[in-house]
Design a protein around this nucleic acid. Structure first.
Length: 272
DNA sequence: ATGACTGATCTCATCAGA
């Protein structure tokens, strides 16, 4: 099972890029962020045509998240994080796809920091962490996937010293990320590539893509129930170089099939 | 410290993004 995340930066303006990538990458489940579309203008028909069922939470102009499933309809389990009924920013949607509960999230940017936007980010992070603890306690196969707007370590930033006062890299935010993964979640890209510089975002400014001045801010966190099934992880970097590209590239993981694993185990047992 | 670039919007200017 292949699970991917892609901050599309406008799902309608980016539809050609998204469809091209879906056809090439053929992920089984996809988390999208920054739809930048009202609920009724989400391109559900075009995605259906491409073979994907979808659930989504839109919002005019900003934010918005969706979960796609290849040849299936995601079974929605939640939209919006618990803890603030007045929060209308469309940053979280959750659905079951292929036996995995997938939480698709778009963490607030938080700049400028300090300030009210940064405070909102930290509060949102606390709500995510509280909800993640419930999923963890339930012991279910789960993945928290999306644009976390956090570089977890120096290895995830092209020039760490330039970012220490930024809302994506301030100590409070890195500590929040460490606290979340400390519950037992596996940062899949980093687990698969422990020492490699991997980026998922390159600013439109200053020729960041051309200079490879990137950030790793899109993450796939796996619960213990599925972390052992991780077989591969990567970033589809080339997508960032396509015409009309998003400023993010898709990131993905592969999980081994549960049934295949059972077969392997049975076969091993049978061999003397 | 500023602004570069991009998409969306009740567009020809502003906001938000990261």
């Amino acid at each position: 099972m292949k699970i991917a995340t892609f901050n599309v930066n406008g799902v309608n303006g980016r539809l050609a890029v998204l469809l091209r990538w879906l056809e090439q990458a053929r992920p089984d489940a996809v988390c999208l962020q920054e739809l930048k579309t009202p609920q009724e203008k989400f391109p559900a028909a075009a995605l259906e045509q491409a073979g994907y069922g979808a659930v989504w939470q839109g919002k005019k102009s900003w934010n918005g998240v969706a979960i796609l499933a290849r040849g299936a309809d995601p079974v929605e389990t939640r939209r919006g994080l618990p803890g603030d009924p007045d929060d209308a920013q469309s940053r979280y949607i959750e659905a079951a796809v292929g036996g995995v509960l997938i939480g698709c999230l778009y963490m607030p940017n938080g700049n400028p920091a300090p300030g009210p936007k940064f405070d909102y980010k930290l509060r949102w992070f606390e709500r995510l962490t509280a909800h993640a603890a419930e999923l963890m306690a339930a012991g279910i196969p789960a993945a928290l996937v999306g644009d976390f707007n956090v570089m977890p370590t120096d290895l995830d930033v092209y020039k760490p010293e330039r970012w220490v006062d930024d809302a994506l890299f301030r100590p409070e935010v890195r500590a929040a990320f460490a606290g979340l993964t400390g519950q037992g979640w596996t940062d899949a890209l980093r687990a698969a590539h422990p020492t490699e510089r991997l980026y998922t975002f390159w600013d439109y400014f200053r020729n960041a893509w051309g200079r490879d001045a990137g950030l790793r801010i899109d993450h796939l966190l796996l619960s213990p129930a599925i972390a052992g099934r991780l077989t591969a992880a990567g970033v589809d970097r080339e997508v960032r170089g396509w015409p009309k590209a998003s400023d993010h590239a898709p990131a993905w993981i592969e999980l081994s099939d549960v049934a295949a694993k059972r077969t392997t185990r049975a076969r091993r047992t049978a061999v003397p």
